[in-house]
Amino acid sequence: MLNGSIGTTRRARRGMLREWRLHALSVFSLAVAFVCLGAALLVLTNLRAIEERWSRAGRASIYLKDNAPAQDVEQLKTALSAVQGIVGVRYVSPAQARQDFGQTEAGPKAALAALPVDAFPASLEIEVRPDVTDSELESMVGKLKQLPAVDDVETYQAWTERLSRLIRGGVAAAALLALVVFASVLAVVGSTIRLALQRRRTEVEVLKLVGASDRFIKGPFLVEGSAQGALGAAGAVALLAALFFVVRGRLDAELAGLVGVEPSFLPWYVVVGMIGVGMVLGTVAALLGLRRLVTV
């Protein structure tokens, strides 16, 4: 059985080398299709990382009223420090807020830093334990908003919810794109295998005359289809990786700091899955392409 598999692989390799232009065009077409799918998965991967980071931010900003007495603010800070679930409280004065915005010398932050100190609200930045649930945090926020010295409370959950809706829409779009890619793989590989079989019609007829089984005849074509699918997916991953690292190298570090995560490439299991799916689809497409031309 091992010798038969080796022989089938060798015949498939000879066939692909003999008609390398045909197979190279097929692999290129598959790579283009898989690049589209891989790019969608790459965007979703990083959006999920941002969602997870934001959902576990564990912090909230309590914006204070302009006329809030310093004594009330200090009492509020002391009371918050004693609340179960809060691990840290930091007071940010208007001057400190403007200084934080003025860390850069150009851009929107510099324009904001040029505003007077009164344009920036004072706030209390609190950190909560990761095990605090959303309902507990909402209850805490509701109570804080009722305090006379508090103007508003920002927990950043609204942004997380918006991002979650965006990701759900992206997953649906990626699923639809995957169906289009799968159909493209079946069509491209199936057409390539049929054309390869037509070019080797004489060879196939001679094999059948000498008593070769249909499995023996089909074997190299199935290997070729599988190889086309795997090479197309692998080429797409390599191209995506090159583009990703070029873009990441030029990405502003402040943007990564703003969203809270560094851009990451596709996880290894997604890469392996793409190549495996390409291999399986290539084999199925080859089977469909041979169905009418070689009897079972």
Rank of each mutant, 00 (worst) to 15 (best):
N3E: 12
N3K: 12
S5A: 15
S5I: 09
G7W: 04
T8F: 07
A12F: 02
R13E: 07
R14I: 04
R18Q: 14
E19K: 04
E19Q: 14
E19C: 11
E19Y: 06
W20V: 07
L22T: 02
L22K: 01
L22S: 12
L22G: 04
H23C: 08
L25M: 15
S26N: 12
S26D: 02
S26Q: 05
V27A: 11
V27R: 01
F28W: 10
L30S: 01
V32Q: 09
A33G: 10
A33H: 01
F34M: 15
A40Y: 02
L41V: 05
L42D: 07
V43H: 06
L47F: 01
L47Q: 14
I50V: 15
E52P: 03
R53M: 12
R53P: 02
R53F: 12
S55V: 01
R56M: 11
R56C: 08
G58H: 07
G58M: 02
A60Y: 04
Y63F: 15
L64I: 01
K65T: 12
N67K: 11
A70L: 08
L80F: 03
A82M: 08
V87N: 09
V87R: 13
V89T: 05
V92Q: 07
S93K: 04
S93R: 00
P94T: 03
A95I: 06
